[in-house]
Design a protein around this nucleic acid. Sequence first.
DNA 1: CCGGGTCCGTGCGGTACCCCACGGAGTCGC
DNA 2: GCGACTCCGTGGGGTACCGCACGGACCCGG
Lengths: 286, 286
Amino acid sequence: MSLRPTDAASKFSVRWQTVAPLPDAHTHAEITGGKRLRTDTDSCPCRPLGNFRESLVTVAENHLIALLPRRDRLRLLAVSESVQLELGTLLYAPNELLRDVYFPVDGFISMVTAIDGKPGIEVGMVGREGMLGAQLALGVGTTPLRALVQGPGLARRIDAASFRRELARSNALRRVLNRYLYVLMAQLATAAACTRFHQVGPRLARWLLMSQDRAHSKHFHLTQEFLAYMLGVRRVGITSAAAHLQRRDLIRYRRGEITVLDRAALKAAACDCYAADRKAYNDLLG
Amino acid sequence: MSLRPTDAASKFSVRWQTVAPLPDAHTHAEITGGKRLRTDTDSCPCRPLGNFRESLVTVAENHLIALLPRRDRLRLLAVSESVQLELGTLLYAPNELLRDVYFPVDGFISMVTAIDGKPGIEVGMVGREGMLGAQLALGVGTTPLRALVQGPGLARRIDAASFRRELARSNALRRVLNRYLYVLMAQLATAAACTRFHQVGPRLARWLLMSQDRAHSKHFHLTQEFLAYMLGVRRVGITSAAAHLQRRDLIRYRRGEITVLDRAALKAAACDCYAADRKAYNDLLG
DNA sequence: CCGGGTCCGTGCGGTACCCCACGGAGTCGC
DNA sequence: GCGACTCCGTGGGGTACCGCACGGACCCGG
């Protein structure tokens, strides 16, 4: 009934649960490896965690985990394993039981609603600042949304049973997740209005900013096809909007490789929903 | 920045907290008064609560409250007061502290997101099947949404402090509210996709069904102006869509008085989001 | 060097909305 | 019974998308 489909339909070769755990990964040293962390972004502040095994290096950690008191954090880390999120992997399918939860560190994940079956639209994004599977804190083991890896990178994975146990044990964890759930709800509401009223250009700008925040880099990989899918528009809609941004030297892109040139101007070009989302997050979890 | 405003802007003479408590309202008898309850709808089954003071009459109660075990339910009712929700009353303004929570019985409430300031769009509806202010179960005392009385009628009101106390005491209450929050999130996600992809006609049909479910009557009051505001379209968009429904004898309306004539056909005319929402609710709280 | 795949740009016609405006029909108070 | 008001219908013109299709640019492997 009156679905306006896009030509960006289900074209993404989605892989099923191919995330492989890294060998024996329980310490920060192993998790972050020798990788140097970029700090060329003003977003998602990730602070050094202090003395946890490797106290010399400034270590990247998921922000929600970092908010936990030391004891609870260590327990949670102990039951987690590090996995490499591969671009395009489908982590959750709608209305299925979720087997694991994810705390992204470098990678990030899109949450997508599919209606009537077909294409879908993104309503949320999870990176280092959040987690995937927070519904478990509500005692519900499924998810209405599809979750898709949109930026490759590391994440901590915890199986659902272990995570439930930690939830039962840790007041702080429940408290943090409850707040995060609230933020998610606020962002869902914003997304509804944004997709309804705002045009492609500002929405694209917003979306690029959100991606950059979570990719922790000026540079990331995204085809126009994928962008179209996320924003719920045609690919050519992205083509023209992105061309416009490029002409104004806000971004540069070439065959899926996108570089943000002028972040401040991009913010100005984005709709206010970007700032609203950030504010909602910072007010409760900043 | 590139907002597409509608002419259904903030035209509704919104009253501030004019809901007046009924005199001494702690029993079902007083709450339901002599009012006869209509049963001409297949929705929101409200079962008799058994022997609570007035065991002879079949009493309408909020469904979430009805799900609680007797002891917790009585405690909750003891701290509640019955209020009459007046059409158009603004119960919550975005980002303000919420002083009370509401469990509608006859009335129902729209949750609206406002972006950029201006008009807004409805992302949720609360009637007897739900409650307003469930965020308190997440430990957050504000709301990102505007809440507006859309159908007049009775509701139970509990002040925030008392409600927090009951939350701390009752596992069952927390459990029910967590599930309800999950349903809300699912519905928010659905709303985002629905407003993006579905056209005015099916969305209007869906919306009328949702209203009818909560009004517990084939008949309710709604101007096209108000409908336009809720759906985020122009009034004339509603005019034509509603005229189409009327020509097919699915509804009848006249100066704001709407009557549903053929509910089955209206369901067929509505987008699938209606059924999806109902299913999400019934799966967890049915 | 050449085919095949991926990705991006353009063009064309259609349409479902937009905004602005006016007019008519019902309702109510005095 | 006469204005004032609320509510609903129509009409004209604009636009930001849509679907479809084709072509060109880049990349890679053999």
